[in-house]
Design a protein around this nucleic acid. Structure first.
Lengths: 275, 275
DNA sequence: GCAATAGTGTCTATAAGACAATATCTT
DNA sequence: AAGATATTGTCTTATAGACACTATTGC
């Protein structure tokens, strides 16, 4: 036992991490929100090569040793640095405090960054409506872009002729993030992460319609949401204005305590994706 | 504020992570199989510090620059090196050729490796019954371990008194892999990845029971599997022996062409997980 | 008033699960 | 022969979706 411990100490002292062919690690964030009932993603325009002038997901290098930070912390930091949206200090109330953040996937194909070997850990964020971002850090510009304007194909490429070209493999990362978002809305209550703390059922339906890109039957949706235990809970209040073109004032709800929807809200018509 | 931002930009422009901030990237594999109707995971006993003598998921450093390799390729290579199970060269027929491999998640908390900053990309593998592994590479020993023998709690810790202790944060990675596997069986046909190319419905049910840890109703399961389009297709043949204690010889099926199960096979009784 | 919308009621087709029945195998 | 199992049948209940209806709002 004592011998083991001495071996371990000697081993650690002799250890040079650079012997192990270190690669660089970045985080990139697919940050989604709903504006004017349309799904938007946060993009920055790159100020420097490679891909200078092209658009990209906000992201950057993880601080590995000095000021070593965890991966989700790096994601929040990059989001804040490059867009000017700030997360308040623990328990604060900056605009990023109410975002849902989850890990999406990691992308590491050799050659995906022309400079060097880079592994990128992608995160997915769901945000309620946020202010317009301000460019910072490496970004020449930052904006919420309607997802539909990016010409994404089913295979994660951009259609020729799309004006905002995405750098690196970010169109694939974005496509993966969108598919994850669509799936998460089926079996989790995360649609509420796109809403204000209090929301109406029609607002929630607008979230589903924006993310799924399909119209949903208002009556059936309404009953379904209320029938899933813990999805939403009533505030007892009624919205001030209908916000739409007419009709009665809808009631207000807040997110319930469910972490999973049971039964789930399944997307209609997925026949093509099954085979 | 503006000054802060410019400093940040200068810092990033000069930043060479390989000189100042080395991060190493590893892959770790949660390889699952079914032996004697019990779910097993592939483990290796570590020959060297840190955590020498403890058990761990097979894995190791990604070749980042010299002989740069992709992440899934690194996962297959580590699996092969440390266990002696070989994947045949493209289109070959080594024991690893029929395994399903998918990315699980990436773990990068500072301090998870006492030597240095290490980011680990975890993969999840579903394998049909494979031969016993042979230790190789850094491994002192390699074995299929019954998942139940590892004393995993719901929070990804190991219960005190468990004999095989897992190194690093591998008990958390394993717990995440198990939960992913349980979920995947619900809405994909991947249970067939645990089976031989031809299998019976009762064998498929045994897979579900092993992964979910619950008994399923034989009659309802049978009809359900056959009613999901593209899950399995008949071979017309019948199994030679029943393999169980009696009863008629079951029919043989092979995997169908569905990528998703619709409708899904939902796990019974998940009330606790919902809130 | 008119058009649009929130919320509820009703009906039908589908799916899940409990239970039963029968034929076929092992021991 | 006894016990176990594969497979099919039947019935009940839960759910999804189509459609209809009423009441309430903005214009």
């Amino acid at each position: 036992m004592t011998g083991d411990r001495r071996d371990e100490r000697e081993f650690l002292a002799d250890y040079d991490p650079r012997d192990y062919d270190p690669v660089s690690v970045t985080v990139d964030v697919v940050a989604l929100t709903i504006r004017d009932e349309v799904l938007h993603v946060l993009l920055v325009r790159r100020a420097h090569p490679p891909f200078a002038g092209m658009w990209a997901l906000p992201g950057g290098f993880v601080r590995g040793v000095r000021d070593a930070e965890g991966l989700p912390e790096a994601a929040v930091r990059e989001l804040a640095e490059e867009t000017g949206l700030s997360a308040g200090p623990t328990g604060g109330n900056g605009p990023l405090d109410r975002v849902h953040l989850e890990q999406l996937a990691t992308y590491g194909a050799p050659g995906r960054d022309p400079r060097m070997r880079v592994i990128s850990v992608a995160y997915l964020a769901f945000a309620p409506e946020l202010p317009d971002p301000e460019a910072g850090g490496d970004a020449a510009e930052a904006a919420w872009a309607p997802v539909g304007s990016l010409g994404l194909t089913g295979t994660g490429e951009q259609r020729p002729g799309t004006t905002r070209r995405l750098a690196f493999d970010h169109s694939r990362i974005l496509a993966d993030g969108l598919e994850r978002a669509r799936a998460k809305l089926e079996y989790t209550p995360l649609a509420t992460a796109f809403c204000a703390p209090e929301f109406t059922i029609p607002e929630l339906r607008a979230v589903y319609e924006a993310v799924w890109g399909e119209e949903l039957h208002a009556g059936n949706f309404h009953r379904k949401v209320l029938s899933v235990p813990g999805f939403v809970e009533s505030t007892g209040a009624t919205a001030e204005r209908t916000g739409r073109r007419g009709g009665p004032r809808p009631r207000l709800y807040r997110a319930g305590d469910a972490r999973l929807l049971h039964p789930a809200l399944l997307r209609p018509s997925r026949e093509e994706e099954i085979r």
